[in-house]
Design a protein around this nucleic acid. Sequence first.
DNA 1: GGTACCTGGAT
DNA 2: TATCCAGGTAC
Length: 257
Amino acid sequence: MQNFTKESLIQSLIEIRQKGWIPTGRKNNDGGVGNTLEDLLGIEENNLPIPNASEWELKAQKKNTTSLITLFHMEPSPRAFKFVPTILLPEFGWRHKEAGRKYSQNEQSFRQTINAKGYSNRGFTVKIDKLDKKVWIDFNYKNISDTHNSEWLEQVSNKKLEPKPYWGFDDLYHKAGTKLHNCFFVSAESKKINGTLHFKYQEIFMLKKFNLDKFVNAIEEGYIYIDFDARTGHNHGTKFRLRRDSLIKLYSDVKQY
DNA sequence: GGTACCTGGAT
DNA sequence: TATCCAGGTAC
């Protein structure tokens, strides 16, 4: 991999911006805007839990989306329980919308995008305990809305989530500190040209000094979401996510190029 | 092949 | 905003 410095990254990103419309390098992949940016920088695809380019993490996002930005992936503790594949998906999951069509008849889904502000309509929420220094997941069937089908309501009624999935502050600090300390955020316009998705990279933000206290406070105040994203055939992992404005606020030093 | 990471979405 | 969701790789 190329050995980037801050200066060479800024230069490369500005050159990419000057190229204008660039075809996606990943057809049929929602992550195309980020993958294509990595391709242009000569970064090989990997799943290593480290910054993309030397000490710099890269985030890209389509301009016209309201989707959340993923900070990182981390499965909850205790790891031995393997919460998502052995508990949350089989015991609390529901029939996938594409079961019997795109997927098998038995395809289950467990997707929850939740924060500390309140319970989702499937009864899940994020809790934060500053004394025990952990973020944990609660489930309470009393908070389930009755809009769900009776089969699922029956399945989870009176069910308890025990033990609670959690993330220790120290683990979160280590993950965020090593992966997110410095970051470039790049936005891109997108459109199809002759049927192929293209991106035009535009705003370039240099974000320095990720602030761990602000990170925990953002979880507590509900600006950071925990996003479970599993179906039977593919667990995409459990993510910590937030909106663009919230991402920028987590850094102490922000510059736009 | 299961699990846990990576890159991100639409309505 | 809430509730759903995508294609990849390492081990």
